[in-house]
Design a protein around this nucleic acid. Structure first.
Lengths: 145, 145
DNA sequence: TTGCGTGCAAAGGTTTTGCATGGCA
DNA sequence: TGCCATGCAAAACCTTTGCACGCAA
């Protein structure tokens, strides 16, 4: 039924790149450029990357999403992490995704479910904002002026 | 400085359609088809719709966003409603957007800000899931079988 | 009458697909 | 050896833009 997966150079390069940045999302262009840096002149072609990303999504290795921006975003899903149960927050400054593994998140989902009749799918939901690192670096810049 | 706005048939048709569904998001294709139904053979062209939607976003009348899906989504912003302060939940079944104007949402944003250093932008954030109406209709269908 | 709005067609950019070849198991 | 993967180019798709004409104010 399911097709077998071949371990090729392109697949390995892509997965290892994404896996080394598990809390970041990348556009396809960012992926292309990064793989050129890593693989040199033997980098995989664009259609290969598109096809691999599509397969990895089906395999549950990678999550595809989209901002308000133009293009798709891909993020590696850590194997030992079940992201189904908690909410995520994405920093609009640096693009990092933070896991809200905290009682307040569960509480919100429970409350919304029981009081408002709305069952939140935490895996698909995303809160956008600015993380502490980015807020701090902005402050630093402001002081420097 | 700012350009003046002309009240044309196309603009009126588009705004009145979106305004009559303030809690729904539409793709451009859905908008095209709806305007054809409403306006008949004198419906506005696609480029006009695209240009109008772009202008309406700048005017703050419409909000543009994107799901995991392929295309842009547009939603009318109710005039008497300030959506900056609260979170939104979108039903994956019917596409409606619900406003979480509730203490628990504020609490989560405060907590995340003070405890995790992450400042949530509520206007851009979206929680996905299934609303009560859709859950109920599923149950009904199940019983009917 | 002025300047914005409109429609058509063409261009632009991203993603997908067809086909012949290459490579893993 | 049998499939799957790859690369190139072409196609498909959504969105934007140029240009001439139409229309609101």
């Amino acid at each position: 039924m399911g097709q077998s997966i071949y371990n090729t150079a392109a697949r390995e390069a892509l997965v290892s790149f994404l896996a080394s940045n598990p809390d970041r999302q990348f556009t396809t262009d960012q992926i292309f450029e990064s793989l050129i840096e890593i693989s040199g002149n033997k980098n995989p072609g664009k259609s290969t990357i598109y096809r691999l990303l599509s397969k990895l999504c089906h395999e549950g290795v990678v999550q595809r999403s989209r901002d308000d921006g133009a293009n798709y975003l891909y993020r590696y899903i850590e194997e030992d992490r079940n992201c189904e149960g908690h909410l995520h927050m994405k920093c609009l400054g640096c693009g990092r995704v933070y896991h809200l593994e905290c009682e307040i998140g569960d509480e919100l989902m429970r409350h919304v479910g029981s009081e408002h009749g709305f069952e939140i799918n935490s895996g698909l939901s995303m809160l956008y904002g600015e993380c502490g690192d980015c807020t701090d670096s902005k402050k630093t810049k402001r002081i420097k002026k």
